[in-house]
Simulated assay, not measured.
Amino acid sequence: MKAAILKGVAVLGMAALALGSIATSASAESLLEKADKGEPIRIGFANEIPFAYPADDGSPKGFVNVFTIAVLKKMGYENIEPVQTEWGGLIPGLNANRFDIVTGGMNILASRCENIAFSEPVATVGDGFIVAPGNPKGIGDYESVAKGGAVMVTGAGYSNIEAAKAAGVAESNIMQVPGPTEILAAVKSGRADAGAGTYFTMKQLADASSGAVEATDPNAMPESSFNWAGIGFRKADQDFLDKFNAAMKEYIGSDDMLEAVAEYGYGKGSLPGDKTSEWVCANR
Protein backbone atom coordinates (compact mmCIF):
# COMPACT_ATOMS: atom_id res chain seq x y z
CA MET A 1 0.00 0.00 0.00
CA LYS A 2 2.79 2.36 0.97
CA ALA A 3 4.57 1.58 -2.32
CA ALA A 4 1.41 2.42 -4.25
CA ILE A 5 1.07 5.72 -2.38
CA LEU A 6 4.73 6.56 -3.02
CA LYS A 7 4.27 5.67 -6.68
CA GLY A 8 1.25 7.99 -6.82
CA VAL A 9 3.22 10.79 -5.17
CA ALA A 10 6.02 10.28 -7.68
CA VAL A 11 3.57 10.49 -10.58
CA LEU A 12 2.05 13.65 -9.15
CA GLY A 13 5.52 15.08 -8.66
CA MET A 14 6.44 14.34 -12.26
CA ALA A 15 3.17 15.95 -13.41
CA ALA A 16 3.89 19.03 -11.30
CA LEU A 17 7.37 19.28 -12.80
CA ALA A 18 5.91 19.00 -16.29
CA LEU A 19 3.34 21.70 -15.57
CA GLY A 20 6.03 23.87 -14.03
CA SER A 21 8.15 23.42 -17.13
CA ILE A 22 5.23 24.45 -19.34
CA ALA A 23 4.54 27.51 -17.16
CA THR A 24 8.21 28.51 -17.18
CA SER A 25 8.31 28.13 -20.95
CA ALA A 26 5.20 30.29 -21.33
CA SER A 27 6.49 32.99 -18.99
CA ALA A 28 9.84 33.02 -20.81
CA GLU A 29 8.13 33.85 -24.09
CA SER A 30 9.26 37.28 -25.29
CA LEU A 31 7.01 40.22 -26.04
CA LEU A 32 7.93 39.97 -29.72
CA GLU A 33 6.93 36.30 -29.82
CA LYS A 34 3.62 36.97 -28.06
CA ALA A 35 2.81 40.01 -30.21
CA ASP A 36 3.58 38.14 -33.43
CA LYS A 37 1.14 35.43 -32.31
CA GLY A 38 -1.59 38.07 -31.99
CA GLU A 39 -1.67 38.14 -28.20
CA PRO A 40 -2.54 41.52 -26.62
CA ILE A 41 0.20 44.04 -25.91
CA ARG A 42 -0.56 45.42 -22.45
CA ILE A 43 0.31 49.10 -21.94
CA GLY A 44 0.73 50.25 -18.33
CA PHE A 45 0.11 53.83 -17.20
CA ALA A 46 -1.07 55.88 -14.24
CA ASN A 47 -3.50 58.81 -14.15
CA GLU A 48 -1.03 61.45 -15.37
CA ILE A 49 -2.74 64.12 -17.47
CA PRO A 50 -1.76 64.96 -20.22
CA PHE A 51 0.83 62.16 -20.62
CA ALA A 52 -1.28 59.07 -20.09
CA TYR A 53 -4.59 58.57 -18.33
CA PRO A 54 -7.85 56.63 -18.66
CA ALA A 55 -10.93 58.07 -20.31
CA ASP A 56 -14.27 57.61 -18.56
CA ASP A 57 -14.70 54.30 -20.38
CA GLY A 58 -11.19 53.15 -19.43
CA SER A 59 -9.71 53.65 -22.90
CA PRO A 60 -6.15 55.05 -23.02
CA LYS A 61 -5.83 58.82 -23.43
CA GLY A 62 -2.87 61.21 -23.26
CA PHE A 63 -0.14 62.00 -25.76
CA VAL A 64 2.22 59.15 -24.79
CA ASN A 65 -0.57 56.59 -25.12
CA VAL A 66 -1.69 58.05 -28.46
CA PHE A 67 1.90 58.12 -29.70
CA THR A 68 2.68 54.57 -28.57
CA ILE A 69 -0.49 53.07 -30.02
CA ALA A 70 0.21 54.77 -33.38
CA VAL A 71 3.75 53.34 -33.48
CA LEU A 72 2.52 49.87 -32.55
CA LYS A 73 -0.03 50.03 -35.37
CA LYS A 74 2.73 50.99 -37.80
CA MET A 75 4.52 47.85 -36.63
CA GLY A 76 1.39 45.84 -37.42
CA TYR A 77 0.11 45.38 -33.86
CA GLU A 78 -3.44 46.46 -33.06
CA ASN A 79 -4.40 44.14 -30.20
CA ILE A 80 -3.63 46.54 -27.35
CA GLU A 81 -4.88 46.23 -23.77
CA PRO A 82 -4.71 49.18 -21.31
CA VAL A 83 -3.69 48.53 -17.69
CA GLN A 84 -3.96 51.36 -15.18
CA THR A 85 -1.95 51.40 -11.96
CA GLU A 86 -0.40 53.93 -9.57
CA TRP A 87 2.76 55.70 -10.70
CA GLY A 88 4.92 53.91 -8.14
CA GLY A 89 3.77 50.55 -9.49
CA LEU A 90 4.82 51.12 -13.11
CA ILE A 91 8.39 49.79 -13.06
CA PRO A 92 7.65 46.95 -10.58
CA GLY A 93 4.56 46.02 -12.62
CA LEU A 94 6.51 45.94 -15.85
CA ASN A 95 9.21 43.70 -14.41
CA ALA A 96 6.58 41.45 -12.81
CA ASN A 97 4.95 40.96 -16.24
CA ARG A 98 1.68 42.63 -15.24
CA PHE A 99 1.97 44.64 -18.45
CA ASP A 100 4.42 44.79 -21.35
CA ILE A 101 5.16 48.48 -21.96
CA VAL A 102 5.14 51.56 -19.69
CA THR A 103 3.43 54.45 -21.48
CA GLY A 104 3.06 56.70 -18.44
CA GLY A 105 5.24 59.55 -19.69
CA MET A 106 8.22 58.52 -17.58
CA ASN A 107 11.35 60.66 -17.57
CA ILE A 108 14.47 58.74 -18.55
CA LEU A 109 16.77 58.73 -15.51
CA ALA A 110 19.98 56.84 -14.77
CA SER A 111 18.34 55.23 -11.73
CA ARG A 112 15.46 53.97 -13.90
CA CYS A 113 17.77 52.85 -16.70
CA GLU A 114 19.25 50.35 -14.24
CA ASN A 115 15.89 48.59 -14.00
CA ILE A 116 14.22 48.93 -17.41
CA ALA A 117 15.07 49.76 -21.02
CA PHE A 118 13.78 52.96 -22.62
CA SER A 119 12.78 53.81 -26.15
CA GLU A 120 14.44 56.77 -27.78
CA PRO A 121 13.04 59.97 -26.22
CA VAL A 122 9.52 60.97 -27.23
CA ALA A 123 9.38 64.42 -25.64
CA THR A 124 11.38 67.13 -23.91
CA VAL A 125 9.86 67.70 -20.48
CA GLY A 126 10.51 70.65 -18.18
CA ASP A 127 9.62 70.73 -14.49
CA GLY A 128 7.15 73.17 -13.02
CA PHE A 129 5.40 74.18 -9.82
CA ILE A 130 1.92 75.08 -8.71
CA VAL A 131 1.71 77.61 -5.88
CA ALA A 132 -0.89 79.72 -4.09
CA PRO A 133 -2.13 82.74 -6.09
CA GLY A 134 0.49 85.48 -6.19
CA ASN A 135 3.27 82.99 -5.35
CA PRO A 136 3.72 84.34 -1.77
CA LYS A 137 6.96 82.44 -1.14
CA GLY A 138 8.56 83.47 -4.45
CA ILE A 139 9.11 79.92 -5.64
CA GLY A 140 10.58 79.63 -9.13
CA ASP A 141 13.06 76.77 -8.94
CA TYR A 142 14.25 74.07 -6.54
CA GLU A 143 16.86 76.33 -4.96
CA SER A 144 14.17 78.82 -3.96
CA VAL A 145 12.26 75.94 -2.33
CA ALA A 146 15.40 75.02 -0.37
CA LYS A 147 16.36 78.57 0.64
CA GLY A 148 12.86 79.44 1.77
CA GLY A 149 12.44 76.26 3.79
CA ALA A 150 9.26 75.64 1.82
CA VAL A 151 7.35 72.36 1.87
CA MET A 152 7.16 70.80 -1.58
CA VAL A 153 4.68 68.10 -2.53
CA THR A 154 5.18 65.74 -5.45
CA GLY A 155 4.26 62.24 -6.56
CA ALA A 156 5.85 59.14 -5.08
CA GLY A 157 8.53 58.00 -7.51
CA TYR A 158 8.59 61.28 -9.44
CA SER A 159 11.93 62.55 -10.76
CA ASN A 160 11.23 65.84 -8.92
CA ILE A 161 12.29 64.17 -5.68
CA GLU A 162 15.86 63.62 -6.90
CA ALA A 163 15.98 67.12 -8.44
CA ALA A 164 14.82 68.75 -5.21
CA LYS A 165 17.30 66.86 -3.05
CA ALA A 166 20.13 67.77 -5.43
CA ALA A 167 19.24 71.45 -4.97
CA GLY A 168 19.38 71.13 -1.19
CA VAL A 169 15.71 70.65 -0.29
CA ALA A 170 15.55 68.74 3.00
CA GLU A 171 13.92 65.34 2.75
CA SER A 172 11.63 66.33 5.63
CA ASN A 173 10.29 69.14 3.42
CA ILE A 174 9.38 66.82 0.54
CA MET A 175 5.86 65.44 0.83
CA GLN A 176 5.13 62.41 -1.35
CA VAL A 177 1.59 61.61 -2.50
CA PRO A 178 0.10 59.21 -5.08
CA GLY A 179 -0.37 61.67 -7.95
CA PRO A 180 -1.60 64.99 -9.40
CA THR A 181 -4.98 65.05 -7.63
CA GLU A 182 -3.28 64.80 -4.25
CA ILE A 183 -0.59 67.34 -5.23
CA LEU A 184 -3.30 69.88 -6.03
CA ALA A 185 -5.18 69.12 -2.81
CA ALA A 186 -2.04 69.60 -0.67
CA VAL A 187 -1.28 73.04 -2.17
CA LYS A 188 -4.91 74.20 -2.05
CA SER A 189 -5.20 73.25 1.62
CA GLY A 190 -1.92 74.96 2.55
CA ARG A 191 -0.27 71.72 3.67
CA ALA A 192 2.41 72.35 1.01
CA ASP A 193 3.83 75.61 -0.33
CA ALA A 194 4.47 74.24 -3.80
CA GLY A 195 3.47 71.26 -5.87
CA ALA A 196 6.09 69.88 -8.24
CA GLY A 197 5.77 67.81 -11.39
CA THR A 198 6.24 68.23 -15.08
CA TYR A 199 5.25 71.63 -16.42
CA PHE A 200 2.72 69.86 -18.67
CA THR A 201 0.91 68.47 -15.64
CA MET A 202 1.27 71.48 -13.34
CA LYS A 203 -0.10 73.85 -16.00
CA GLN A 204 -3.07 71.55 -16.52
CA LEU A 205 -3.77 71.48 -12.76
CA ALA A 206 -3.58 75.26 -12.54
CA ASP A 207 -5.83 75.79 -15.55
CA ALA A 208 -8.46 73.44 -14.08
CA SER A 209 -8.32 74.88 -10.53
CA SER A 210 -10.53 77.95 -11.15
CA GLY A 211 -7.81 80.22 -9.78
CA ALA A 212 -7.11 78.22 -6.60
CA VAL A 213 -3.47 77.78 -7.67
CA GLU A 214 -1.19 79.13 -10.39
CA ALA A 215 1.67 77.64 -12.37
CA THR A 216 5.11 79.21 -12.07
CA ASP A 217 7.16 80.36 -15.06
CA PRO A 218 8.96 77.30 -16.53
CA ASN A 219 11.71 79.56 -17.91
CA ALA A 220 12.86 80.18 -14.32
CA MET A 221 13.98 76.56 -14.14
CA PRO A 222 17.66 75.77 -14.91
CA GLU A 223 18.49 73.80 -18.05
CA SER A 224 19.71 70.95 -15.87
CA SER A 225 16.13 70.39 -14.69
CA PHE A 226 14.90 69.52 -18.18
CA ASN A 227 14.31 65.86 -18.87
CA TRP A 228 13.37 63.60 -21.75
CA ALA A 229 10.44 61.21 -21.51
CA GLY A 230 10.58 57.72 -22.97
CA ILE A 231 8.55 54.55 -23.19
CA GLY A 232 9.62 51.72 -20.90
CA PHE A 233 10.28 48.07 -21.80
CA ARG A 234 11.68 45.05 -19.98
CA LYS A 235 15.38 44.65 -20.70
CA ALA A 236 14.68 41.14 -21.93
CA ASP A 237 12.54 42.60 -24.75
CA GLN A 238 15.34 44.47 -26.52
CA ASP A 239 14.43 42.83 -29.83
CA PHE A 240 10.93 44.31 -29.65
CA LEU A 241 12.34 47.67 -28.51
CA ASP A 242 14.70 47.80 -31.51
CA LYS A 243 11.75 47.23 -33.81
CA PHE A 244 9.72 49.87 -31.95
CA ASN A 245 12.52 52.46 -32.21
CA ALA A 246 12.80 51.87 -35.96
CA ALA A 247 9.08 52.48 -36.47
CA MET A 248 9.12 55.44 -34.10
CA LYS A 249 11.92 57.14 -36.03
CA GLU A 250 9.68 57.43 -39.08
CA TYR A 251 6.70 58.72 -37.08
CA ILE A 252 8.03 61.21 -34.52
CA GLY A 253 7.77 64.82 -35.66
CA SER A 254 5.58 63.96 -38.66
CA ASP A 255 2.50 66.02 -39.44
CA ASP A 256 0.32 63.00 -38.55
CA MET A 257 2.00 62.63 -35.18
CA LEU A 258 1.81 66.34 -34.27
CA GLU A 259 -1.85 66.46 -35.27
CA ALA A 260 -2.64 63.38 -33.15
CA VAL A 261 -1.08 64.81 -29.95
CA ALA A 262 -1.96 68.49 -30.36
CA GLU A 263 -5.03 68.27 -28.11
CA TYR A 264 -2.75 67.36 -25.19
CA GLY A 265 -0.59 70.49 -25.48
CA TYR A 266 2.26 68.75 -27.31
CA GLY A 267 3.71 70.93 -30.08
CA LYS A 268 6.94 71.19 -32.04
CA GLY A 269 8.65 72.67 -28.98
CA SER A 270 8.03 69.41 -27.14
CA LEU A 271 10.00 67.29 -29.63
CA PRO A 272 13.08 65.65 -28.08
CA GLY A 273 15.67 67.02 -30.52
CA ASP A 274 18.80 64.99 -31.11
CA LYS A 275 19.13 63.49 -27.64
CA THR A 276 19.34 59.67 -27.52
CA SER A 277 18.19 57.41 -24.69
CA GLU A 278 21.82 56.36 -24.21
CA TRP A 279 22.86 59.99 -23.68
CA VAL A 280 19.96 60.70 -21.34
CA CYS A 281 20.63 57.58 -19.26
CA ALA A 282 24.22 58.73 -18.84
CA ASN A 283 23.41 62.39 -18.08
CA ARG A 284 20.22 62.33 -16.05
Rank of each mutant, 00 (worst) to 15 (best):
A3S: 05
I5N: 05
A10Y: 01
L12Q: 06
G13Y: 01
A15N: 01
A16V: 09
L17I: 10
L19G: 08
L19K: 01
G20D: 00
G20P: 03
S25I: 02
A28G: 08
S30H: 11
L32P: 05
E33F: 03
A35N: 08
D36F: 04
D36A: 09
G38Y: 01
E39D: 15
I41T: 02
A46Y: 08
A52E: 10
D57E: 12
D57S: 13
S59Q: 12
P60Y: 01
V71T: 11
V71Y: 06
L72H: 03
M75A: 13
G76P: 14
N79L: 08
N79I: 06
I80Y: 03
P82M: 03
P82N: 02
V83M: 05
T85F: 01
T85L: 07
W87A: 07
G88V: 03
L90W: 05
I91D: 00
N95F: 01
N95A: 08
N97I: 05
R98E: 12
F99L: 07
D100V: 02
G105C: 04
M106Y: 06
A110I: 02
S111H: 09
I116Y: 08
A117S: 14
S119I: 08
V122M: 09
A123D: 15
G126L: 11
P136T: 13
G138F: 02
G138E: 11
Y142V: 05
Y142T: 07
E143M: 11
V145T: 06
V145R: 05
A146N: 06
G148P: 07
A150N: 13
V151E: 13
G155Q: 14
G157P: 13
I161W: 12
E162H: 10
V169I: 00
S172V: 08
N173F: 07
V177T: 11
V177F: 00
P178C: 06
G179M: 03
P180V: 03
T181F: 02
T181M: 04
E182I: 00
L184Q: 01
S189N: 06
R191I: 10
A192L: 01
G197M: 02
T198K: 06
T201M: 10
M202T: 15
L205R: 08
A206H: 09
S209M: 09
S210A: 15
A212D: 12
E214D: 03
E214P: 09
A215L: 00
D217E: 11
D217I: 10
P218Q: 10
A220M: 12
A220G: 14
P222T: 07
S224C: 09
N227T: 15
W228M: 07
W228I: 04
G230P: 03
I231E: 06
I231S: 11
F233W: 00
D237F: 05
D239Y: 03
D242M: 04
D242F: 04
F244P: 00
A247K: 11
M248A: 15
K249A: 15
E250K: 13
S254D: 14
S254G: 09
S254Q: 03
D255N: 01
Y264A: 02
Y266G: 06
G267N: 14
G269W: 04
P272I: 12
G273M: 13
D274T: 12
T276Q: 11
T276N: 01
W279E: 15
V280P: 11
V280F: 09
C281F: 12
A282E: 15
